[in-house]
Design a protein around this nucleic acid. Structure first.
Length: 273
DNA sequence: GCCACTGTTAGCAT
DNA sequence: CATGCTAACAGTGG
């Protein structure tokens, strides 16, 4: 669920609330959510202040004083929620950062338990296994860099867009939306695409992701920002989750097929190889 | 109740 | 190395 625009929305939201706060306690009700060999590493965060939040692909990165960093991945159903410590916690809350004096805390909540948190030294964060090997950020990658990145790649266009080692941050929803916007068939062989089509693809990535961020992300089911609020972009989706609905461009019914194992929505008339 | 399906990706097979 | 499939988990809907 949380792809680049959702993660960016969470980061911007939480920045306003937790930068400057001091960690009073770290609680880990569900140990497997912590990727560190020793969960006790997280005790080192007590007494540290939040210096800032960053996003890398779909990862949330929290930097603390004392040269400490937390890397968070929400996978499908994870949420990072800032709220009053007194609010009841349910059984899906797997990690809690309590903040000194404020009566507030940050909770990692994840129904399916696919997500994780790793504590690292800030200086080592870029080399953490989860960040190492991630592709470039799509929104700061110019067209020549994009073309260079795709050079020599094979396979279906859709699986290329989903490959985090190629470009970081796109998931199933935005891959489908980007492909619709660029009028390309998700099944197309990457090697067969000419420069005009690739340019269209690049500019659609910029456009769709920026729009989705402006609308604070897509809530299909689980996505919430740091305050628990839903996104607004679900109202603007053109193909994702719209099987059978007329294409907004030509009126043909949107199709849903399976491409490299993923549900894929597209317009069979507008989107050509 | 049972079965199929779900937004991600690590790990294994090819 | 690169690319492709599946399991990890829990909840939802048919």
């Amino acid at each position: 669920m949380p792809e680049l625009p959702e993660v960016e929305t969470i980061v911007r939201c939480l920045r306003r609330h937790i930068v400057g706060l001091e960690v009073a306690a770290v609680r880990v009700p569900f140990r497997p959510v912590v990727r560190n060999r020793r969960a006790a590493f997280l005790n080192g965060f007590v007494g540290r202040r939040v210096l800032g939040l960053r996003r890398r692909g779909k990862m949330i990165i929290l930097d603390f004083s004392g040269g400490l960093t937390m890397i968070v991945h929400l996978k499908m159903t994870g949420q990072l929620l800032f709220g009053p410590a007194r609010a009841p916690r349910d059984r899906h809350t797997h990690l809690v950062l309590a903040f000194r004096g404020s009566g507030m805390e940050l909770r990692y909540h994840d129904v399916r338990k696919f997500g994780f948190i790793r504590g690292t030294m800030t200086s080592d964060a870029e080399r953490a296994p989860e960040l190492r090997g991630l592709g470039p950020e799509p929104l700061t990658m110019d067209l020549p860099a994009f073309l260079h990145r795709l050079k020599g790649r094979r396979g279906r266009l859709k699986s290329l867009l989903l490959n985090q080692k190629v470009i970081a941050g796109l998931g199933n929803i935005y891959a489908d939306e980007v492909l619709f916007e660029s009028r390309l068939d998700p099944r197309a062989e990457v090697t067969r695409l000419g420069p005009r089509r690739l340019q269209r693809l690049w500019s659609s990535i910029q456009h769709v992701l920026n729009e989705a961020i402006a609308y604070k992300g897509t809530t299909v089911r689980d996505f919430r920002d740091g305050e628990g609020l839903e996104g607004l972009f679900q109202n603007r989706l053109k193909v994702y989750g719209r099987e059978g609905v007329p294409c907004p461009r030509c009126g043909t019914a949107i199709k849903r097929i399976r491409v490299s194992g993923r549900g894929t929505h597209f317009c069979p008339r507008c989107q050509r190889r």
